[in-house]
Each structure stands twice: as structure tokens, then as C-alpha cells.
Design a protein around this nucleic acid. Structure first.
Length: 619
DNA sequence: GCCGTTTTCGGCCCGACTGTTTTCAGTCG
């Protein structure tokens, strides 16, 4: 595990153990906050920690936390973490992950009943001893039993590309119901995070809609085909489990039984994701949408800002006082300053509308206004696509026709190189013939430019998979690492630097080779890679496939700050891959990419000139 | 444990919902 991630997870574990031990909750929260801050860093924590001042400059990290981080970076452990682990049973943290169980309840289970694992909890349910806990009745126990059954699925996050279609099923179904004015997905899905915990659907009802219409929305929601279980069914709030397709496309794991490998068992009831519904008046939709879009940390910042201006912000609107001792303002008849639209609420807080993707408490409230992030409609070129020559399903012409249909002015044919044998990589002679075929197709085709390229392997030692003469005959060179993805960071850094500094490389394809949830990939020193990419005028790819999303959001942000160009590519193998573009664009937006910074938005003339300049003494 | 256009000490976001209770504790987002 990369050091940043390991430190973040250590601090996060410490926070949860402190909660279980009943220690000061603000102290625990401070550790959680520090963990998040570390997770959001693009730079290597071990480098940063060499300068104590740099650590202290990170928001949420003070003197004591800095010492713990330095201790981690120099010794590999934090003594306090070990002390906490000695006091908290191993399996207790997994009990805390069961939905609906919080630190207070789990602590009571542990202290009063000796429960230290999910198995122990299940036994206490069956023998009835759980009922002896204070405030624990039949219904509460039934809920926990249910949650335990679904914990395997519910505790797991899933891929953005798996969750989005689920949201669309519900949105399409609810949109046309009587009284429904607005339907949208909120939460991490709207923010475009690479993994999704549950899907949040928000429905805004017209002012004249009768109460029955609201109830009908809930009913239709809960009876949607694909719903396997109803978790909650209130008037304005419902939760269900919805079955999802577990396939992982061309990355489907293929275990080798001879080596004793097997797939993990599916969770009981099959793979599923939780979907939550909230129904509210359209007159407060904006405030509610902000609230349910989050992130939680972003919301906290906004509320603090509201308080500093003598106002209160909640999901019902922005209110002109802070008398919280008198009860919620909306139930005291106080008229909100703003509530109907997000724009209204932001404006009343002296802010421009903030795109959902950047609402992560990473400085977005201090951004010089207004926001002008790259948009889906800005993308006019696809620079990474495969044909039947290697492992794609389209011929050159079919690929070009599909790209033209989607409004692109340029499509680059970049089949695999010889070392990617499993993917049907092209030997040099085949590539030469393929280049000729692409050029001929380009001559015959109207309305789009077809470029001859290659996705050339970066070999383990940093050499490219074709010689320079062959590479120089291509219009586009995407250099990608496909093998040896478990190299140590220093070796990986040298390897990728060799590719980025190669004079004929245009784009560094899926730079780390990570797969979301599945595989960590390389962990080179990204700041070195970005500095070299800027100097050598190489674009860093955001691979739009939801399994990859590589570069990831925080690296995109660092690349932008380093002055790099960004490419957003679908890595097309089949038609559906074009549809992943929205995930790539969302990831770019999460990294604060403007349209001008993204080469896929450039007009044909500018893009083609940039490509030609490489390797011919230009730039 | 962090942090400061109210504060270097004393705060730290806010409301809905649920299930348990006769006024509230815990969890969630």
C-alpha cells in the first residue's frame, strides 16, 4: 500500500478505536479529519513530512498530529496506534461497519455482552441476549439482523459506472409521476466519485401536489423491478437494496483452480447496492440538493460560513438567524433567504455556484470565481481507441463512424503494441500495414479525421515497445504500462520518466495502471512525473473507463497545478466505451481541469498542429 | 486534537428519523 494510503487508514483506524473506547469525540474527529487530509494529498507524504512546516500548513494538522505523522514516516508505525489496538478487540471494527450500528451501540455490546465480532453479534441475536441491552427492543434487533445479512453488500462501495445506471433506472421511472417537478441523483454519484456507497435520489414535488402524490412516489420507488429488499418505507423517505450486475467487463477476474484460486463468494441475496429516496417540496429543492450532494465536509464549511454571516443553513434553506435554541427555523415559520435553487443559496453566501464535482472541502470555497471547468460537450476528439487489429470490436471505418456520430472531429486509432500479446498487439510489420490502412480509410472518410497511432507498451525498464523510426511514422503515440505493475515506487518513477521524456510520446496512458477497487497499480512519485510531463509537453491521460479513472482525481489536481496538459480518453474497445466519457470528464472536473487545459477540447487545427510538433524539433 | 475578522481557551454543523421511551439517545448523511 502506498505510504499516504497506509497512513490515512492508520489514522482513521485510530479515530474509530477512540470512539469505541468512548474517548473525546472531538479528538477522534480530528484524527478522521487528518486521515482525509492525507488521502487528498497528491505529493508523497514521506517527502512532505521531511519539512515539518509543510505538514503544519495542511489544514487539520497541528503540532501533535505532525509529530505522529513524522513518527510514521521515520519508523513505519505510530506507537499510539499499537496502544489502541491492544485495547480494542480485533473484530470490533468490523462490527462497527454494520449499517445502523454506531460507536455507542457497539461499545455497549462489547462491554456488557462481550461481543467482539460479527459472528458474536449473530449469536447474541439468536440467543436473545442482545435484547438485554438498554434501549434495545424487538424492532431494533430485527433491524440489526437484517443489516448483518446485507452488511457484506452494503458495506462495500461499488464502481461509479455500476451505480450510475441504477440511478438512471429510478430517475426514468419517477420523472413522469404526477406532481413530480424534479428528479436527480445526489450524493457521491453527482460528485462523480470513483466509488459509490449508496445511490441517493432526490424528488421535488410541485406546490399543488396532494399528499397522495408524495406517497405514490415512494410506492413506485419501492416496487421498481430489481429491488430485492425494502429497508425503510416512510412517507418522504425510503431505502431499498437493488441488485446490480457484478460483471467487470474485460477485467473479469479469471481464477486458476489449479493454483487453488477462486472467486470470493457473492454476498447473500446477490450483489446489490442501497438506494435511498427523499421526497420534498420543489420550493426547497436547491437547499436539499446541496445538502444531499455533500460532501459532508463541504456542507460543514458552508454552514460555518452561514454562521459567520449570522445565518443558519440546513436542508430546508438558508435562514436569517442563528437561534438554534428556539428550534429549527423552518418549523418556527421563518422565511428562508434562499432555498429553491442551488444558485440562490450560493449567491446568498457570497459564492458562485460551485460544481458538484469539486465539493470536497479541498479549497473550493476560496476559488477565484467564476468556475469554468471542462464540460462533456467540450470534448471533440478521442485519442485512444482500439480496432479489430488488436482487441477492439470495430473496424477502422466503424470506429470512425461511431466517433463522427458522437460529434468528434478526430479519432485516433491506437492499437496495442507487440508486447501486449494477450491483447493481440501488433508486430512492427503489421503496424506498418495498419498505418497504411488507417491512412487509406482517412482518405475515404468524410467529416472526421482518422489518425494513425499506437498504444505502445512502456516495458518494465522504461523502453518503448517499438523503435523510434516506427514511432516517428505515427500521428499519435500513447505510451502505457500494462505489465510489471507491482514495481517499487522508485523503479516505477524511473520507468514512467523514461516514457515521458521520450521525444516521440504525446500522451501517458492510464499512468498508474490501477484498477478501481481491484488493483493499486504503480505508485511512482507523481510530482516528478508531472514536472517532466510539463517540460516535455506530454499530456497526462484520464482514462475514462470506470474501472480505471486513471489519473485519479487528486492526481489530476496535482497535474493541473504542475501545469500539465490533460487528455480525457475512452480507451475505446467497443461502442459502450464511448459512454464512459462522462466519468472521465467528471474526474477531470474533480481535478479542476478547465477546457483549455484538455487537448480533447481543442479545435482540429490546433490539436493536429500540437501532435505534429512532437518529434520534429518543435515545442 | 485543531483553531482563531467573537476566542490562545472553549468552542467544534444540523436536522430527520427510528425506536425506545414519556423526553431522548443514537445514527445517518
Amino acid at each position: 500500500m502506498p505510504a499516504n494510503q497506509e497512513l490515512a487508514s492508520t489514522l482513521s483506524d485510530m479515530a474509530r478505536m477512540m470512539e469505541l473506547l468512548g474517548e473525546d469525540s472531538f479528538r477522534a474527529a480530528a484524527h478522521s479529519r487528518a486521515a482525509r487530509a492525507i488521502e487528498g494529498l497528491a505529493g508523497d507524504i514521506e517527502t512532505i513530512a521531511a519539512d515539518r512546516g509543510a505538514l503544519l500548513a495542511i489544514e487539520g494538522i497541528g503540532a501533535k498530529m505532525a509529530d505522529k505523522i513524522i513518527e510514521f514516516c521515520t519508523t513505519g508505525v505510530i506507537k499510539e496506534h499499537a496502544d489502541l489496538r491492544a485495547r480494542v478487540p480485533e473484530g470490533l471494527l468490523s462490527v462497527l461497519e454494520v449499517p445502523g450500528l454506531g460507536p455507542k451501540t457497539v461499545r455497549a455490546m462489547w462491554q456488557q455482552l462481550g461481543i467482539t465480532s460479527r459472528d458474536g453479534l449473530a449469536r447474541a441475536i439468536e440467543d436473545g441476549s442482545l435484547l438485554t441491552l438498554p434501549r434495545m427492543g424487538e424492532k431494533a434487533v430485527a433491524k440489526i439482523r437484517d443489516a448483518l445479512t446485507f452488511a457484506a453488500a452494503a458495506g462495500q462501495r461499488t464502481w461509479l459506472g455500476k451505480a450510475r445506471p441504477v440511478a438512471d433506472v429510478f430517475i426514468d421511472r419517477l420523472r413522469s409521476l404526477a406532481g413530480v417537478e424534479r428528479v436527480e441523483a445526489a450524493g457521491s454519484l453527482r460528485r462523480g466519485r470513483e466509488t459509490i456507497g449508496d445511490v441517493d435520489i432526490l424528488v421535488g414535488m410541485a406546490a399543488d401536489a396532494p399528499p397522495a402524490a408524495t406517497l405514490a412516489v415512494g410506492e413506485v420507488f419501492r416496487t421498481t423491478p430489481g429491488v430485492t429488499h425494502v429497508l425503510a418505507a416512510g412517507d418522504s423517505k425510503s431505502s431499498v437494496m437493488f441488485s446490480i450486475d457484478a460483471s467487470q467487463g474485460r477485467w473479469q477476474p479469471t481464477p486458476n483452480p489449479e493454483k487453488g484460486e477462486s472467486l470470493p463468494p457473492p454476498p447473500p441475496g446477490g450483489p446489490a447496492i442501497q438506494v435511498d429516496l427523499r421526497v420534498l417540496p420543489a420550493s426547497v429543492y436547491g437547499a436539499a440538493l446541496m445538502y444531499f450532494t455533500g460532501s459532508k465536509e463541504h456542507n460543514v464549511r458552508l454552514r460555518e460560513r452561514a454562521i459567520a454571516r449570522g445565518m443558519t443553513l440546513n436542508e430546508w434553506g438558508l435562514f436569517p438567524d442563528t437561534h438554534k435554541d428556539l428550534g429549527p427555523p423552518q418549523s418556527r415559520g421563518v422565511t428562508p433567504i434562499a432555498a429553491a435553487t442551488e444558485e440562490d443559496v450560493f449567491r446568498a453566501l457570497d459564492l458562485p455556484w460551485i460544481p458538484p464535482e469539486v465539493r470536497e472541502d479541498r479549497g473550493e470555497l476560496d476559488h477565484p470565481r467564476p468556475w469554468a471547468l471542462v464540460d462533456l460537450a467540450d470534448i471533440k476528439a478521442e485519442l485512444h481507441a482500439h480496432t479489430t487489429a488488436s482487441d477492439g470490436v470495430f473496424t477502422i471505418e466503424q470506429l470512425a463512424a461511431e466517433a463522427r456520430r458522437r460529434g468528434f472531429h478526430t479519432i485516433a486509432v491506437t492499437d496495442h503494441s507487440q508486447s501486449s500479446t494477450i491483447a493481440g498487439g501488433l508486430r512492427p510489420d503489421r503496424l506498418r500495414r495498419h498505418i497504411d490502412a488507417v491512412r487509406e480509410a482517412n482518405e475515404r472518410t468524410e467529416g472526421i479525421t482518422i489518425l494513425a497511432g499506437s498504444e505502445v507498451d512502456i516495458l518494465a525498464d522504461g523502453r518503448l515497445d517499438y523503435d523510434d523510426d516506427l514511432l516517428a511514422s505515427l500521428d499519435v503515440v500513447v505510451a502505457s504500462a500494462h505489465a510489471a505493475l507491482t514495481q517499487d515506487p522508485a523503479t516505477a518513477t524511473r520507468r514512467l520518466l523514461a516514457a515521458v521524456t521520450h521525444p516521440l510520446v504525446h500522451i501517458l496512458g492510464h499512468p498508474t495502471g490501477r484498477l478501481v477497487i481491484r488493483r493499486p497499480g504503480l505508485s511512482p512519485d507523481m510530482s516528478e512525473i508531472f514536472a517532466a510531463a510539463r517540460e516535455h509537453n506530454v499530456a497526462m491521460e484520464i482514462n475514462a473507463h470506470w474501472m480505471r479513472l486513471d489519473l485519479r482525481d487528486i492526481h489530476v489536481r496535482a497535474a493541473v497545478e504542475a501545469g500539465c496538459l490533460i487528455a480525457i480518453d475512452c480507451d475505446v474497445h467497443e461502442g459502450a466505451d464511448f459512454d464512459n466519457l462522462r466519468f472521465g470528464v467528471q474526474t477531470a472536473r474533480r481535478g479542476w481541469v478547465t477546457a483549455d487545459r484538455c487537448i480533447n477540447t481543442w479545435p482540429a487545427r490546433r490539436l493536429h498542429a500540437w501532435l505534429r510538433a512532437k518529434g520534429r524539433g518543435g515545442q
